[in-house]
Design a protein around this nucleic acid. Structure first.
Length: 161
DNA sequence: GCCAACGTTGGC
DNA sequence: GCCAACGTTGGC
């Protein structure tokens, strides 16, 4: 089989954002948005190696009054150089990143669905089918993590009840 | 290369 | 606001 005929499997992700900074409503308004400001090497490597067009992601609201999964989005542009690392006016400015060797990557996502109600972290922790998610484990601090297709559909199901 | 000190994330 | 659990930095 040639390389061209290999169809890559869709990856499923959960991606955190502080809704005060950027919420599911902001994404819905914009339609398509850059996902920028990643300043962690593990996550950077995930963007570089795995996140690709067509991947599906849960939008998670973190560090807020109500925390949990707010909706669904799709990756529409794979990893590219995050412009905010060179922008002195940005919160994400990184003076150590050089134009010749940029450190950080961003990508683009498109709004798909906003859940009627937030699927709270506590509800997720109560669901026995979701106990393997990195999200429910202690010390999980990565803003993006991979999830199983089954976990994605389980959470989607919880949104419909 | 080790590791202490410091910074950040994020739930509670 | 607290603090656990990391990640990063920098002196040695």
């Amino acid at each position: 089989m040639t390389k061209e005929t290999v169809r890559q499997k869709t990856n499923y992700w959960i991606m955190k954002s502080e809704p005060d900074e950027f919420s599911i409503d902001d994404l819905q308004k914009k339609g398509i948005s850059i996902w920028d400001g990643i300043r962690n090497y593990q996550v950077r490597n995930m963007i570089r190696n795995e996140i690709k067009v067509g991947d599906i992601a849960l939008f998670y609201h973190s560090s807020a009054k109500d925390i949990g999964v707010a909706g669904v989005m799709r990756v529409v542009k794979a990893g590219y150089i995050d412009p905010t690392q060179f922008d002195k006016n940005s919160n994400y400015y990184d003076p150590k990143s050089k134009k010749e060797s940029p450190r950080w990557l961003s990508f683009d996502v498109e709004f798909d669905t906003k859940f009627n109600k937030l699927i709270s972290l506590s509800k997720i922790k109560q669901n026995p089918k979701l106990q393997n998610m990195v999200l429910v484990k202690r010390g999980n601090r990565l803003s993006i993590s991979k999830i199983e297709k089954e976990e994605f559909y389980e959470i989607s199901k919880m949104a419909q009840i």
